[in-house]
Design a protein around this nucleic acid. Sequence first.
RNA 1: GCCCCCAUCGUCCAGUGGCCUAGGACGCCGCCCUUUCAAGGCGGUAACACGGGUUCGAAUCCCGUUGGGGGUGCCA
Length: 470
Amino acid sequence: MAAVTPRLRFAPSPTGYLHVGGARTVLYNWLVARQQGGEMVLRIEDTDTERNRPELTDDILDEITWLGLQWDGEPVHQSDRLDLYAEAADKLRAGGRAYWCDCTPEQIQRRARERGGPPGYDGHCRERGLAQGPGTALRFRVPDGGTTSFADTVRGQVTFDNAKLEDFVLVRSNGIPTFLLANLVDDVDMGITHVVRGEEHLNGTPKYLLIGEALGYDHRPVFAHLPVLVDEHRKKLSKRRESMAVAAFRDAGYLPEAMVNYVALLGWGPSDGVEIRPLDEIVDGFRLEDVNPSPAFFDMKKLSHVNAEYIRALGTVEFLERARPHLTHGQASEDVLAPIAPLVQERVRTLAEVEPMIDFLRDDELAVDDESWQKGVVRLGERAVAMLDAAAAALDGCPWEAGAVEAALAGAAVTAGFVKADGAPDMRRAQAPVRVAVTGRSVGPPLYESLVVLGRERTLARLRDARARL
RNA sequence: GCCCCCAUCGUCCAGUGGCCUAGGACGCCGCCCUUUCAAGGCGGUAACACGGGUUCGAAUCCCGUUGGGGGUGCCA
C-alpha cells in the first residue's frame, strides 16, 4: 500500500469564540501534521443554523493565525456541502440503514418514562416505513448486536456495545444533517487520516464508525481523544466562558509564543523536562502516544510565569514594539517607557502590566495610593519629613543622571538619619518616602532611573506636594 | 440510571517491573543578593487513591472498590 500523506483537520463550529481548549486541539493537530510532513486543514462545522454565528468564523481564523499556526488550503464550510450529506443520507435510507421518524422529543421522553427504562430513543419508528414529510427526521438504524471498537492513540482499545447505542438522528426535520453525519462524510471525502479532538467526542466515535461502515467506506483513521481542559472545580472549561477565549489572552498581553508553549504542556511534557522551549523543538519531541489521558487544569499562575519568561527573553526593541498595542496613551507612554524599558520588561508578567507601571512618569497629576502613603510615609513620621526635605535639597542642584541622583539621595539619607550600623546610608528605608512621594506607590521600577525620566522639576514638585500634605 | 474514560506533590509534567529513600516545573515558605518590586542564587514543603493479586521484585501488569470526569440533543 502506498504511503499516504497524513492529513489532519481542526473542525470548529462557529458557535463561540476560539477558547483555550480549542487552541490546544488545533495545536496538537498542527504538531502532528508538522512532525509527520502532513497537512492540517480547517473545516467549519456550521450545520447548526440556530446557534451559528458566521461572524465568529473570522475570529477563529484570526486567533489561529495569531497563535502562529498555519493551515493548508482554504477552510471548508459544511454549509457549502449539503448536497454531499444529502447524498449519503439517501444512500443509507435506500440501503435500509436509516429510516424516517416523526416522534417529537416530548413523545420520546414520555415513552422512556412510562417504560421506566433508560432515557433515549426506543426505535419506535423503525418498522413504520414512514416517508419523509413535515416533522420527520432521518435516524440511523444501529445494529442490534455486536460491538464497535477502535484503537485510540491516547487511550488504547475502546469498545462499545452496539445494543447500548440508540438510533440517532442523521438528518434533522429541517433537512439539515447533524454533526454525526457531516463529520464522517467530510472526513472520508477530505481524506482525513488522523482524528485528533477533545474527549467529549469519544462517545460519538462508534456512531462515526458505524455510519462509515454502513456507507461502505473503509475509513479507519488514527483516533486520538485529548483530555478535556478543566477549571478550578475540575469541570470542563466552558466555551461560553469568555475569559477563556484566546482573544481575551491576546488582549491581556500574553504573547502567542507563550500561549502555545504553555498550552502544549497541558497533557504532554518533554522527557528531558525542559518546558519552556521554541515551537520547532516541541514539534520534534511531541508524541501523540505520550499524551496524558487525564484531564488537565488550566493554571493561570503557570501561564503567567511562562509569559513572563518569554517577555524577558525579548530584545528591548522588540519588547517596545510588542508592548505598543497595549499602551493606552500612545506616544506619551512610549516616550517615558523607552528610557527604562529593560527595567520594566523584567518586572511585568503580561504586556498589559506595562502601562500601569509607567503612568506616574507620564501623567502630570499623580495618583497616590493610600496604602502606600500610609506605609511608606505616614508611618515614618518625622523621619519621613526629614528625608523629604533632605531629598529635595540634595536633588535641587545635582547632575541629572542615575548615578548622581543615587549619590544625592544617599547624602540626603545620612542627613535625615537613615544610616546603617556601619555608618553607610540605609537606602532600603530611606527610599520609601521618596518613592511614594514621587511615584505614588511603594513598588515600581528602580527609583533613580525613574527620577531621571521624570525630570528634576516634576520630581521636586512632587516632593514638595508630599511635604505639604504632612 | 446507563455507557465510556480517567486516577503520581495544591497544579502541570517525568517515570513504561529493579537506576524511586519517586525527578522537574509552577505555586507556597525560608535564607542570600538588593534602592522598592521583580529577576537571580540557595534551601524547604508536598504525591504513587484504597484493597487484593501476578512477580524474587510493582508507581509501573491484572482484578475489584472508591473518587473524579465525559457522554447520554432534531448541539458540536
